[in-house]
Amino acid sequence: MVTIDNVSVEFHGTQRLLRAVNGVSLSIREGDVFGIVGTSGAGKSTLLRTINLLQKPTFGRVVIDSVDITCYSGIDLRRVRQKIGMIFQQFNLIHTKTVFDNVAFPMRIAGKPQTEIAKRVLYLLELVGLLDKIYAYPSKLSGGQKQRVGIARALANDPRILLCDEPASALDLETTNAILDLLKGIHRKLGITMLLISHEMSVIKKVCTRVAVMSEGVVVEEGNVYNIFASPQHSLTQSLVAHSLDLELPERVLGSAKGALVKAVYKGIKAEEPVLSDAIREFGVGINVLHGKIEYINDQPLGVLILNITGNEQGVGQTIEYLRTRTASVEVIHG
């Protein structure tokens, strides 16, 4: 549906040439919720902006529905843009227009008839749950409400692609979750292809099906969100995932633990099997769970446990080997 083919973006800085995006190729399928994650300055936002040519790539091509749009300009480009919705971190609503007029704006641009506009604005505001604010001005809305207006506006021309530029980064935690749930619901309901960028893995985890990890203008890892969480390869991905899972042990526990400290990751259906009790029975060791959680990513369970295994050396060794066969990955932290 969207193909980014070897795209690079260069900026002429005061001192030197800055390459914000460096030879990125991605392919987004119809109906994907594709996340792009990375630290700030990684070039995610610049990359996202090449898709509707808010940022022209210096090299490479952007292909939408097998049509190369990279060289489009004028009316052709505007027609393409009308079919690509976009929401922004800072909402970017027109302050002097009411909620109604903000949502109607893209349709007026596209020259839709007045009656159709009025009907669709009502539908969209109901979809985002903001019908009661229809004649309010943006300054009277909370951050979450502003983003709801932003989402309704982005969907106005019934786009097939929705670009989300850090949609929840300016919001508090609770509102973030509400907005992400709304986006997820919209994806389920409309089947729209979405591209979402965020600096937080937890946002990606909540809504995305696929993810690309960016660092310094390059995609360092790409894949299914579940797999990326279960076995991150690149060091940046590992630290992002670890940060999201938040399984840090306090120093006191790390220092005083006897026996082996092991981090075990369970995938899919295995997360629901009684692996630990089997091991205790089999090898006569003690297993203490120091930390752990089961995450559900795209409705599949992913279990991460930090275990303290005590007992004789042979039993501990056998237990670790056993865990390796029964779980997705085992990492010995110490011992």
């Binding site: 808010l54 009316i75 505007r78 009308q82 609503l93 027109i94 106005a156 021309n157």
Partner: peptide
């Protein structure tokens, strides 16, 4: 005028004259 708002209008396919008039 907030550059982000102008960018949003551009992203929705507004022409320069529409941006002037509407934003």
């Amino acid at each position: 005028v907030d550059r982000g708002v102008i960018e949003a209008a551009t992203a929705f396919g507004a022409s320069p004259f529409q941006i002037i008039k509407e934003v």
